[in-house]
Nucleic acid binder design. Structure first.
Lengths: 119, 119
DNA sequence: ATAATATATGCAGATTTTTGCATATAGAGC
DNA sequence: GCTCTATATGCAAAAATCTGCATATATTAT
């Protein structure tokens, strides 16, 4: 009974104990994101990102939602958010990522362009 | 700069993301313990326990103190205690471990024997 | 149906970690 | 000095993970 607790807890820590996966989780703290967004933000090949996402998804740390061609991932575990906060500090502000083609990023780029135009 | 944060944080999680190391840390939450104590509590060979202890020590999660022939280990990282609390819940009561020969365990056995005698 | 795009999956070589075991070290007591 | 006990270290085989790449799937648009 307590053995299972150790198993699940160490699996949780194991998944968070990888630089790339930890960064993915940290990015998702700021809100949902599509694969192309994570890919651009991390500067890593898409299949690689998808594989790490699969591990996190299968373990229930994140979940996904399809919208047309894009699949948006988000955190699905309260404990993960708390652990991230304890170790990485408060959530950092989202910064638009060049190189991501999803509607969300396009929108934030437009907003930026507007800001630039106002200056 | 933030990269280093990810590195150190994922190293911390990595070390905690192993069933045996996690159990060792959980045992040390209850107070310092010698190797023979951990060995008996986990039911694992002594060299194996010492190796995991070395990893935890080199990363600064635990520290040790020698007293004669015995070496007592204890948690040396506040963050680790908090993370353990969040995932494993409050500290469980220490239970004397048969098979451990250190003075501390002998003492707790004596206490138990007293309790038994009172019944 | 075909093409194009976003994402997922499968597989294999390279690298790490895990685990077990033999042996070394260090202190205590004789 | 020698012996005993507690702990540490070294090494290697086995197992797991990491990483990269080729390819498959699913959806949209033409």
């Amino acid at each position: 009974m307590r053995d299972e607790l150790y198993e699940s807890a160490s699996q949780l820590f194991f998944l968070m104990g990888h630089p790339v996966r930890l960064r993915i989780l940290d990015l998702l703290r700021r809100g949902e994101a599509c694969v192309c967004h994570l890919q651009a933000a991390l500067g890593l090949p898409q299949p690689y990102v998808s594989q790490q996402l699969r591990l996190l998804r299968e373990a229930g740390l994140i979940s996904s939602r399809r919208e047309g061609l894009f699949i948006y991932y988000r955190l699905a575990n309260q404990q993960v958010e708390e652990l991230l906060g304890k170790v990485l500090g408060p959530v950092e502000e989202t910064q638009p990522v060049p190189g991501c083609a999803c509607p969300k990023c396009q929108r934030s780029f437009s907003a930026d362009f507007l800001k630039e135009a106002v200056r």
